[in-house]
Computed example of a mutant assay.
Amino acid sequence: MPEHKPPDTLMLGTIHTPLEVELHGGVAGRRSGGVSEYFYSKPGEVSTAYPCYNTIIGALLRTRKIEMSISHIVRLSDSPLVEEVKHGRTERAATTIRPAECCWHLVLIRYNGGAELRIVGPLTIATPLSYPEGAELLWIKFRLGAFMPRLPLKSFLDTEKSLPDATSQSFWLDGSTWQYPSYENADTFVEWLVRKEILVSDPVVKAALQGQPQEVADRTLRHRFLRATGLTQKQIQQFQRAQLAWTLLQQGVSILDTVEEAGYFDQPHLTRALKHWLGHTPAQIVRMEKTAVIL
């Protein structure tokens, strides 16, 4: 491994340097030329919002000028197996809460002259996240149902593991050396993984996620979900329901109405779910919305 190995606490982040931004429906960001930029805060300076329907929806700002922790740009991918590709840099060290995530990622970290590619598995609970200043990051987020058969996702659940490096610019995967991908060539990199049958997709899982009935036994479907996502279908549904509840609260729907619309039994049930999956209670989410001021 490189002499200057990235710290174990470094993971998924998103953000920009001091800058004036405007709040658009609760989303701080801008879009230009097909590229979206979303801005997140340093804890204690502004409140942070979390993913909804697998899309980062932004930050709630208390002030117009703020110092941001991470800058990044994000784009969609040409690959049907990839949801998005992001490239960013940590502008300062910070700690925040990372929400749960059903999708897995490849994350390339460049820090203090070293490089490391990590497989970041699905996350089943919100956890604290810390990162240092000066790290360059590339995220490739894979769609549900895309997986590497020889690297079972269940072994990456709630964890991340580094792929062995070959040189300063390459790593080992499936018995071969690969050049580290970049923001510009990530789609080509993924295409080669597919050609070599290192990366595949399960059509049954994809169809089931779209609500299409499957003519397979329940036990078989469960096995295919665990193999292709590392999660059960029920876990994915619970996560998506928590995301829906977050969106409803962000849109101003009352807590009690959110309980009904998102399909929870009662308010304590909603509270437990949001705290588990997204790291905040409904009341905290509502308070964050109330502090957001359009300047």
Rank of each mutant, 00 (worst) to 15 (best):
P268K: 04
T247Q: 14
K275M: 06
Q214H: 00
L278T: 04
V216A: 13
T258R: 02
A262E: 03
V205N: 06
I285W: 04
R272V: 13
G279F: 11
G211Q: 03
R227M: 13
Q251N: 14
L274S: 05
T258H: 03
A283C: 07
M288P: 02
Q240L: 08
A207S: 02
V205H: 05
A217I: 05
P213C: 02
K290L: 15
A228L: 06
R227D: 04
T271Y: 06
P268C: 01
Y264I: 11
A292Y: 08
L226Y: 09
G279M: 09
L278H: 01
R287M: 12
T232P: 00
Q210G: 08
L209D: 07
L209C: 09
Q284T: 10
Q251T: 11
Q233G: 11
A228D: 02
I236Y: 08
R241L: 06
E261T: 09
G279P: 01
R224W: 03
F239P: 02
Y264E: 06
E289F: 13
V205F: 04
E289D: 12
V253S: 01
R222D: 11
A228T: 03
H276K: 08
A242Y: 04
A217M: 14
L249H: 06
L244E: 14
Q240T: 00
L209Q: 03
D266Q: 12
D257C: 02
L244V: 11
G263L: 02
A207K: 05
D266E: 13
F265Y: 12
Q284D: 08
T258V: 02
V259I: 09
E289Y: 13
